[in-house]
Design a protein around this nucleic acid. Structure first.
Length: 655
RNA sequence: GGCCCCGUAGCUCAGGUGGAUAGAGCAACGGAUUCCUAAUCCGUAGGUCAGAGGUUCGAAUCCUCUCGGGGUCACCA
């Protein structure tokens, strides 16, 4: 994995253990290597830009060195073979090393130049920084180019409980907020609850018709689940109504009209499948009632508003419980019922500025050719009511104004990519200063073995059920290992382990990936998992207990201890820790928490390997190297803890 | 049909501006515990990176085409 020179990682300068003239930060090591490489290539009379473009990367085998780079690209400029150039460049670097340079060896392997770092120096710098920064190792608290990001995620509808798809959204949004925060940016995480609209009226109507006044209290059911049951019921009822209607003469007439008009050979099934929306809007009795309910809601009809308030309160209380269990939170929660009209004035303003057009029926549209796309987009209906786009335009502008934002990130499924493309273009068209300041973090859908989840049919993996199952599995696993734990401790461990398993599993997929989720066998506690990382962390705690705390040495003894780490397994861990700050940057740059899960597994794995190695049993080792190993373990623990923190996973000292 | 995403080991997935031998987990097979937690470790096996062209010293990665899967193209959200 090459280190990207474009990463502008800047550490807060540690105040301790600095010897004058010594390299002190991880970032300075990288910068020094890049400088040496660039100087040598430039000295060979090559354009500095060419030198800059050649990236340093760890060689395939650590035995070859810490960093290396190829010389192929120089052959063209120097008219010599890459291998000869590599030799000359290696010679130059070697001859120009400072006294006591951290680069301890320069070698070539054919056309590659490889640089080795002095292990004792590397160990002192990397571990020194980790031990100083502790749980915030790799994080920045501030930066010169600090920006204010708002991250919008979750955005549930109040007609049903949340499922795994929402869980993925919640976890990605939460982790990205934490990760960006760790890079020193200012983050405002927000939710936007979709609490109004025809889909909300569906569950309300079903409840009104069939609910018999039951409540979460009377039924003992969580509010969002109760409401979700009526949403499913509504869809059952309308499916029944539709099936019955399909046998009517009128339906037959519609079918014939379609056949004649389209000259298609489609079957009845295809026709009725695609006609269902029209049926809902034009023929359905239930559809008629739902629309009537929406109309009354918009008019402020007291009875409808009262029902709406009651049911939404149930759902939102249910959501709060789920968020609490998941450990995600928001700085501000927007309700669509309070924001859905925000965009109207902005659309009007665009019309006055001649950017939008008015259709004969009064609808205001944007000609998408003006923003580099085709077709047109309705921004406001002819009757003056708003559409999704209206509210998104309004909330975006309002947020930039109210929060003094630099960037806005929407965590929304990739099915809405086109919508956000259009939204961002129209926003930039209206407000040129917003150009490039909005991002859509699009993530793939979560699919079940039997296909897509269907909330309307209740074919979903429910978020609360999933959490329950994870905890139960963890409870069993804990129970198998200990028989002397009190219930409270078992519960605590089961909750943490179950949550770790779920979060790690979900976040280990790159966001773009469509997740194929098999509830029966997807989540494991073995191998590359959250519990695996927790386990490494807990083992280090057990070393601390066994050895009665971490060493506290003076600077000289400590330097000696850290400098005594020299085996391949020890150096492998130190090199992993060296990568940690860059890993956070990379995860932030790519908006991908999976960079963190990946890193944590590799780090935990490297630690487990050392831990199991007979030559590295700390209890069997004495003197400075024992202290060195203890410091190393402590640094690894800080880092695993820091990483899990970015994923929203709490740690355990015993599992 | 237009646009977007994807196709890598039996399964699920990684793979940074193109660089050295394409990785991991699970599953399979074989080992390791008088020991700091076996939710562990070590090893074996498993790949025409969908296919074909092209660019390049060098392609899983960039370009073109083909095939296959998904999404989207509403006055829904």
């Amino acid at each position: 994995m090459p280190i990207r020179p474009s990463l502008h990682y800047i550490f807060c300068p540690p105040v301790l253990w600095r010897t004058p003239g010594e390299l002190m930060h991880i970032e300075e090591i990288e910068a020094h290597l890049v400088k040496s490489k660039n100087a040598a290539i430039t000295a060979a009379d090559v354009d500095p830009q060419v030198a800059q473009d050649i990236a340093l990367a760890p060689p395939p085998d650590p035995a070859m060195g810490d960093r290396g780079f190829p010389c192929f690209a120089l052959a063209r400029h120097l008219r010599k073979s890459p291998a000869i150039i590599a030799t000359e460049i290696a010679d130059f670097i070697r001859e120009n090393l400072d006294d006591n340079d951290i680069i301890s060896e320069v070698t070539t392997a054919g056309p590659y130049v490889n640089l080795r770092l002095n292990p004792a120096r590397l160990s002192n710098i990397v571990l020194g920084q980790a031990l100083l920064e502790k749980e915030s190792f790799g994080s920045r608290s501030d930066r010169d180019d600090r920006k204010h990001f708002m991250v919008e995620f979750s955005a549930p509808n109040t007609n049903k409980p949340q499922h795994v798809g929402h869980v993925r959204n919640n976890l990605i949004g939460d982790a990205i907020s934490r990760i960006l925060s760790a890079t020193g940016q200012r983050i405002t995480p927000v939710n936007l609850i979709n609490d109004r609209g025809i889909h909300i009226c569906k569950s309300m109507l079903a409840y009104e018709l069939f609910g018999n006044g039951e409540t979460p209290a009377s039924s003992g059911e969580k509010g969002d689940h109760l409401v979700g049951r009526y949403y499913v019921l509504f869809n059952q009822k309308i499916t029944e109504e539709y099936s019955a209607w399909q046998k009517s003469d009128e339906a037959e007439a519609r079918f014939q009209e379609w056949l004649d008009a389209s000259e298609s050979e489609g079957s009845r099934e295809t026709f009725f499948a695609q006609y269902s929306d029209k049926f809902f809007n034009a023929e359905s009795e239930l559809g008629q009632q739902a629309r009537e309910m929406l109309r009354k809601w918009e008019e402020g009809d007291p009875a409808v508003v009262e029902l709406w308030k009651t049911m939404n309160a149930w759902v939102i209380a249910g959501f709060d419980e789920t968020y609490e269990r998941l450990g995600v939170s928001f700085e501000h929660v927007y309700l669509e019922s309070q924001t859905y009209e925000l965009g109207k004035s902005i659309v009007e303003e665009g019309l006055k500025a001649d950017k939008f057009d008015k259709l004969p029926d009064g609808a205001i549209v944007c000609d998408l050719e003006k923003v580099g796309l085709e077709g047109q987009k309705v921004l406001l209906r002819g009757d003056g009511t708003s559409v999704y786009m209206t509210q998104d335009l309004g909330t975006a502008v309002t947020r930039f104004d109210e929060y003094d934002l630099d960037q806005m990130i929407y965590v929304v499924g990739d099915e809405q990519q086109y919508h956000f493309d259009v939204l961002f273009r129209i926003l930039a068209f209206l407000r040129p200063e917003l150009e490039g300041r909005l991002q859509h973090l699009a993530y793939g859908m979560v699919e079940l073995p039997e296909g897509k989840m269907k909330s309307r049919e209740g074919k979903v993996v429910d978020a609360d059920d999933l959490l329950d199952e994870m905890e139960e599995l963890a409870r069993v696993a804990v129970g198998e290992r200990y028989d002397d734990l009190d219930d409270e401790e078992i519960e605590h461990r089961a909750r943490t382990i179950g949550l770790a398993a779920l979060k790690y599993y979900i976040l280990d997929f790159a966001p773009r990936t469509t997740v194929h989720f098999d509830p029966a066998q997807s989540i494991d506690f073995q191998g590359r998992t959250g519990p695996y990382c927790l386990y490494s962390y807990a083992r280090i705690s057990s070393i601390e207990r066994r050895l009665q705390g971490w060493p506290e040495l003076d600077e000289e003894k400590r330097t000696e201890a850290l400098g005594s780490l020299h085996s391949e397994l020890e150096l492998a861990l130190i090199r992993h820790l060296q990568q940690w700050p860059y890993t956070i940057e990379l995860a932030a740059e790519q908006l991908s928490p999976s960079r963190i899960t990946e890193y944590l597994f590799h780090l935990s794995k490297a630690f487990s390997t050392l831990y199991n190695d007979p030559q590295h049993r700390i209890v069997d080792i004495e003197g400075p190297r024992r202290d060195g190993l203890l410091y190393l373990s402590q640094a690894v623990q800080y880092t695993i803890g820091a990483g899990l923190q970015l994923l929203g996973i709490p740690t355990l000292n015993e599992m």
